[in-house]
Design a protein around this nucleic acid. Structure first.
Lengths: 149, 149
DNA sequence: TGCATATAGTACAATATCGTACTAACTAAT
DNA sequence: ATTAGTTAGTACGATATTGTACTATATGCA
């Protein structure tokens, strides 16, 4: 590899780190009271993919330790946004189901974010987003696979 | 905006969130014992930009609360990787200077990361990185500016 | 100069993240 | 059926992050 491009890989992860932080703060500003990004991300995932998944499924989906997911789900449950039920297929396990309130919080937040993204699109138009998305997806898939090697 | 592209903005931040987490875990696997990503990021910044900056400078550079930076610097100081000196220009303030050991830890880590990035480059070649970097930079600058509005 | 206000850093408390160790339940191989 | 090994979830403790409140110092302005 041309040595002059190596720094670009550092730069890439650096930019991603900063953007992640800024966008997380941004998201959390739109969330009700005690909710933080991981809460929303789980709610969103349960709607986008499906609910009824196990805590371990969710921990794997977000690459967090299962103890972290236990804690996050505890917060969602305490606020009545998800409901934990026993897993009929495995007595060790549980299933995470959305409540109407949980769907409401997610939908309200999405609705608040829409106009924000519209503002972003004035600076970074959709075609530029469309251009970088495939690369990011590929990078994510690569890193995910490289994780357990 | 064409309503079909709005989801791409969600996807973008979602991918960035996952990549950040994967790359952070990746970095931390290369760090010595008790060090975590924020420690390294500060060391790296002190070398890339300059040392002798104040804790508040650093907190602003990384968009973290100053209390967080106090804590991170405490960890670096405890391990002898940075040295805190009084700021001759302001008696309220301090300056953060790298120690030889701090430079060593950073350099060793960079050296370990090089081959890893080389591996990444086999899947995501430099020209694709070069293509997305400007967009990410622009996005970071936009979000940074949008923060206090 | 004197004083109101702003700023740099820290102490402390609340919550988040995560590793270790544990229990209960499942699986596989005999 | 028994049992060794595996897996799902949690309890607990260590450390990280962040908001609030405080102290010391600096700055601006009458």
């Amino acid at each position: 590899m041309d040595p002059t491009v190596l720094p670009n890989y550092f730069k890439l992860f650096n930019e991603i780190g900063i953007i992640e932080q800024l966008s997380r703060n941004f998201l959390e500003a739109q969330l009700p009271d005690g909710l933080i990004a991981p809460h929303f991300v789980v709610l969103n995932h349960l709607i986008r993919v499906k609910d009824g998944q196990t805590p371990l499924d969710l921990a794997r989906a977000f690459q967090v330790p299962k103890t972290t997911m236990t804690h996050t789900l505890g917060g969602l449950e305490k606020r009545g946004l998800v409901e934990m039920r026993p897993n009929p297929k495995d007595a060790r396990s549980k299933q995470v189901w959305l409540t109407a309130s949980g769907r409401g919080v997610r939908d309200d937040t999405i609705a608040r974010l829409g106009p924000k993204f519209l503002e972003v699109s004035h600076t970074i138009p959709p075609d530029r987003i469309g251009a970088i998305l495939p690369v990011l997806e590929e990078l994510r898939i690569y890193l995910d696979a490289a994780r357990d090697r």
